[in-house]
């Protein structure tokens, strides 16, 4: 251990850490602390903030729009996580069989990830509105059911390829001997897949579920571009609801309430992260024993 500390003298902190720490303080630590503090204030800009205690939190929970956005987020998130991971996993299994065209399929399925949320939302708005007009249903701006499934379809289109890449890497890291041994013992292909491979992929599945769940909760650009919460905030997700509190809602109290909502939102996301962390830890522990 002594050599370690001699390797970099502590005074090099100034050179190696301080520049980033300064930027991090400006870009995260100050905004975070100020953000939490402002959730207890009434303000329109930081200079006119006045402390109001937990009033913002009471108003936030009392806001029907917020509760509706929370519920909408939960029900889209759950369906998205399920569909994206199931499809991503199935495609990964198919594409690790080394069928003809694997490289092309993998390229195509991942491609939408490179396109930004705003552009994705706009592309799908055009497509979905066309389909709706063909079947004679109201367009997205007036059709919350279409808005609900629209955002799910959009996110599937974007993220299936992403989790598929992770599942492919995980499947390929399983040594061939394992499945060969199982097959010699008489296991069928599907038995090998579900009984041997699936348990070994547990940590990858956890990671993908966590990534897709957090992405779903934090979803903003796609939501803004596809429906911007229309009709009448019925397809508004948490992040957009908070954003609208800040930049689209008249009234002196709304920024404070928006900030309180953001703190609640943050606590939810942190709880998801902790749950994932503990689950992965426990399972890893089981394997190590």
């Amino acid at each position: 251990m002594a050599t370690r500390n001699e390797l970099i003298k502590k005074r090099y902190f100034v050179f190696f850490v301080l520049p980033l720490l300064a930027a991090f303080t400006v870009g995260f630590i100050i905004p975070f602390i100020e953000g939490v503090w402002l959730s207890f204030c009434r303000f329109t800009v930081i200079d006119n903030a006045s402390f109001t205690g937990i009033k913002n939190y009471i108003s936030a929970f009392g806001d029907k729009g917020f509760r509706a956005a929370l519920w909408f987020t939960v029900k889209t998130a759950l369906v998205m996580v399920l569909l994206i991971n199931t499809a991503g996993f199935v495609f990964a299994v198919i594409l690790t069989r080394e069928i003809k065209g694997t490289a092309v399929f993998r390229t195509v399925l991942f491609m939408p990830n490179l396109i930004g949320g705003i552009v994705l939302g706009y592309i799908w708005q055009i497509i979905i509105n066309y389909v709706l007009s063909v079947v004679g249903a109201p367009l997205l701006a007036l059709n919350s059911t279409a808005g609900y499934w629209g955002i799910i379809i959009l996110m599937c289109w974007q993220q299936i390829g992403y989790v598929m890449i992770i599942y492919i890497a995980a499947l390929q890291s399983i040594p061939d001997e394992m499945s060969e041994a199982a097959q010699i013992d008489g296991a069928t292909y599907l038995q090998t897949l579900f009984k041997i491979k699936l348990p070994m992929l547990f940590s990858s599945i956890m990671i993908c579920v966590f990534i897709t769940l957090t992405n779903a909760f934090k979803l903003f650009d796609q939501n803004l571009a596809l429906t911007s919460g229309e009709p009448a905030h019925a397809t508004e997700m948490l992040a957009l609801n908070i954003y609208n509190n800040f930049y689209a809602r008249p009234g002196l109290m709304w920024r404070g309430i928006g900030q309180a909502k953001a703190v609640i939102f943050c606590i939810i996301v942190v709880m998801i992260a902790c749950a994932q962390f503990r689950l992965t830890k426990e399972k890893d522990g089981e394997y190590n024993e």
């Binding site: 400006v26 870009g27 995260f28 100050i30 905004p31 975070f32 100020e34 953000g35 939490v36 402002l38 800009v45 930081i46 957090t214 909760f217 934090k218 903003f220 948490l238 992040a239 908070i242 954003y243 800040f246 920024r255 928006g258 900030q259 953001a262 703190v263 939102f265 943050c266 996301v269 942190v270 992260a273």
Partner: peptide, 15 residues
């Protein structure tokens, strides 16, 4: 882990 919405307002003001 922290969502952008929590810091967005004070980040833009700090900037």
């Amino acid at each position: 882990i922290v969502p952008f919405q929590l810091v967005m307002f004070s980040l833009s003001q700090t900037a």
